[in-house]
Amino acid sequence: MSDTFTLDGREIPFEPGQTIMQAALAAGVYIPRLCYHPEFKPHGSCKLCTVKVNGRHTASCTYKAAPGLQVESNTEELNTERRTLVQMLFVEGNHFCPSCEKSGDCQLQATAYELGMMSPHFDHFFPDRPVDASHPDLLLEFNRCILCSLCVRASRDVDRKNVFALAGRGIHSHLIVNAASGRLADTNVALEDKAVQVCPVGVILKKRRGFAVPIGQRTYDAAPISGHVQGSASLTEE
């Protein structure tokens, strides 16, 4: 008999040590997120998974579940704040869904749809970020980076390579690769690396594969991102 907490009025069981996010996922409940991935240590940076625990804002991917917690997630207030966060991500980079090969498979796009984002709302920054096409099989499209650090964690913790890192601070934060030249071709990255598989947006791309999957068969064509929650009854794909 495990303990439970309350999420939007529903009793959610949890195992000792689980975060609110982990327990919610196991129960098939979707909490919006971009930097959280079940296989990696939480980073707590995108803030999309922010919930209210006993009335206070906190990141559900890092907050440990405890018996009797009153957690709010799917509320108009929190979803409005999440929508604003997503809008800011859209304007900070160059996210042109119409010509992006990740369209339909992109978690940023899918989350924006989920949250009912109808426009970017803010002025675009239109940063100038040249792509790195130096690697024969991989393309780095920095314009779409949302600084989730999943590639950093995957390369460090799974691949044991440290190919990727975030450099700079604040608004100057940016993705770099571990080579004196700054070019991906001069790193020891490999196609089968976990870091290459994990990008939630369209930054780390296998070359010459774009648009091979027809519209209708892409990840989020059949069901919105909230229908892809791990452990849910109907869909288990993540």
Binding site: P98, C100, E101, F211
Partner: peptide, 14 residues
């Protein structure tokens, strides 16, 4: 210019 070639048929139709 500077875009990967496989993106072009989708981009230019705009």
């Amino acid at each position: 210019q500077g875009r990967p070639y496989w993106e072009v048929p989708v981009m230019v139709q705009r």
